[in-house]
């Protein structure tokens, strides 16, 4: 009886955690947060995109060629992020990478299933941003496709003090003005 209960509990817990995150190739997500836009604003940026849009594949990099490709893509992401999220030059912002990695979605192991499970992986990166000048009224521009042509659209959300703004970048011409609408 006790074994049956433990089994039921395990099954129910398993059912709860068995969830799939939405995964859309070509779509990136960027969250930017500043405590305040006054004086010398300091903030964080989170970047998330399907690995396919950054490295070109989503399977585990096992071969030397795949590993090299993945490393090169992550190096590009770290080095050229300031071209993807562009702060106005007048604000003199410096973007520093904190982390960048490829994370595979954990599908668990279904040994009974003979069908091959689809594998997804995502690139997650975090950056610090430090600006020398206030960002009030600053206009952010975006160049995702210039650096990674496979990124076709990006949802950008920005928190700046009590301001919460968003823009969907599709053509690359969209901007985000940091001021109350």
């Amino acid at each position: 009886m006790r074994i049956a209960l433990v089994f039921l509990l395990a099954v129910s817990l398993g059912a709860q955690t068995r969830q799939r995150k939405a995964h859309e190739h070509g779509s990136a997500k960027v969250n930017i947060a500043f405590e305040s836009v006054k004086s010398a604003p300091k903030g964080v940026i989170e970047f998330e995109a399907p690995a396919e849009s950054i490295t070109g594949f989503e399977h585990e990099a096992k071969s030397a060629a795949d590993k090299a490709k993945q490393t090169a893509a992550l190096t590009t992401l770290k080095a050229r992020f300031a071209e993807m999220v562009v702060f106005p030059a007048a604000a003199a912002c410096k973007i520093t990478n904190k982390s960048a990695k490829v994370e595979a979605e954990d599908h668990g192991h279904d040994k009974k299933s003979k069908t091959k499970q689809e594998q997804h992986s995502e690139v997650h990166a975090e950056f610090d941003v430090q600006c020398a000048k206030p960002l009030t009224g600053a206009v952010l521009t975006f160049g995702f496709a210039k650096v990674f042509p496979k990124i076709h659209d990006a949802d950008v959300a920005l928190i700046a003090g009590d301001l919460q703004l968003s823009v969907e970048v599709k053509t690359g011409k969209e901007t985000l003005r940091i001021e109350a609408k």
């Binding site: 947060a33 405590e35 003090g161």
Partner: peptide, 24 residues
């Protein structure tokens, strides 16, 4: 602190004990 919003949002969205969702 406003800057913690993204971190707390991530914690809520990945909360393992219950499927929760935090939106801005």
């Amino acid at each position: 602190r406003r800057i913690d919003t993204l971190r707390v949002q991530r914690e809520i969205n990945t909360f393992s004990e219950e499927p929760l969702q935090a939106i801005l």
